[in-house]
């Protein structure tokens, strides 16, 4: 290999660690703020406490699954099951609560179910050698089926007020659901950006063979990433159940795609080894703002889908251009 870049100093390149990620998310943050300002000027209804709390609640759920999805995508994998896990876990938590389990136990058991699903994904990918796309496509299909089977296709109403009130509550003027995002984001940031396991996740996504030869236990890293994703999806499933007051196997339909879109808008590369915790956070807020704004502007819901699709293309295109120039 001979490249001209050898002796002469190379144009400064920044690795996708916190430094670059932070700059990049600042630009996305700018876009988000610009949208908020524009919507505040264009409508009377956007900048109201009620609407803003609503926006935060909706974004919170997407943000949580997008963060989990990002762990998986950085290893150059994909988790298509997150939407199905949300539906399935909303059913589980509802059944447990209606079965008389205390709230704390229901939540913990449901999170445990999420962990088990993640471990199963890891097993299929590492031990059986299945491609992540196929493995999680299979569980996505099967989990919906199991959920429907368990409920016979019906919804399970949750009558535990302490549980359902939580999602409507607020602390210090901030909706409880948004506090949950922070509860997830802080440890996720520590794990991905500050701990050695985070480094290993990037290394596996960049070159699993090199990571293995450097002593990284690649299997454990893959198990870790899918477990984080499934556990966060289970958590989002619990919060969804609390928000709508029912457990439904079909809830969260298509959310796996929302989580992938939020992650990619937030700068994650589907080829692996590039991504952050803060990127998908902002990405999910952007997507939610687009949906919320379109509602307030009375845009036909059919058009909303078209606009969202177009904006994803535009945002990711400009983001990639900017990074390539760097």
């Amino acid at each position: 290999m001979t490249t001209a870049a050898a002796t002469a100093p190379v144009a400064p390149q920044t690795k996708p660690s916190t430094g670059l990620g932070f700059l990049m998310s600042l630009t996305l943050l700018g876009l988000l703020l610009a949208m908020w300002i524009a919507l505040s000027l264009a409508t009377d209804t956007f900048l109201t406490a009620n609407n803003f709390a609503n926006l935060m609640r909706q974004a919170a759920l997407w943000a949580i699954i997008a963060m989990g999805q990002t762990f998986v995508i950085i290893t150059a994998g994909i988790d298509l099951s997150v939407g199905a896990v949300i539906g399935f876990c909303s059913v589980i938590v509802a059944m447990l609560l209606q079965g008389g389990f205390p709230v704390w136990a229901s939540v913990l058991i449901t999170l445990g179910v999420g962990v088990a699903i993640g471990l199963f994904h890891g097993f299929g990918i590492v031990k059986m050698g299945l491609p992540p796309f196929i493995m999680t496509l299979a569980t996505m299909t099967a989990l919906r089926g199991i959920g429907l089977l368990m409920t016979n296709g019906a919804t399970i109403s949750i009558t535990v007020d302490r549980f359902t009130d939580f999602s409507r509550g607020a602390l210090l003027g901030v909706p409880n659901l948004f506090w949950m995002v922070i509860l997830v984001a802080v440890p996720a940031f520590v794990l991905l950006h500050l701990s050695r396991w985070g480094r290993y996740i990037y290394a596996v996504g960049s070159n699993a063979e090199a990571a293995r030869l450097s002593g990284v236990n690649v299997s454990v890293v893959i198990f870790l990433a899918y477990t984080v994703s499934a556990m966060l999806a289970a958590f989002a499933g619990i919060l969804t159940a609390a928000r709508i007051g029912v457990g439904v196997a079909t809830t969260g339909d298509g959310w796996e795609l929302q989580s992938i879109a939020s992650s990619v808008i937030g700068g994650t590369s589907l080829f692996g080894a590039v991504g952050s915790v803060h990127g998908p956070l902002i990405g999910s807020f952007l997507l939610t703002t687009i949906a919320n704004g379109a509602n307030l502007l009375n845009i036909n819901p059919f058009w909303q889908r078209i606009i969202t699709g177009g904006l994803i293309i535009v945002i990711v295109y400009f983001d990639q251009m900017r990074r390539r120039r760097r």
């Binding site: 996708p16 960049s206 070159n207 090199a210 080829f271 080894a273």
Partner: peptide, 9 residues
């Protein structure tokens, strides 16, 4: 293929 994570620092 085996030695480096090329797209990392």
């Amino acid at each position: 293929d085996q030695g480096l994570c090329l797209n990392l620092g």
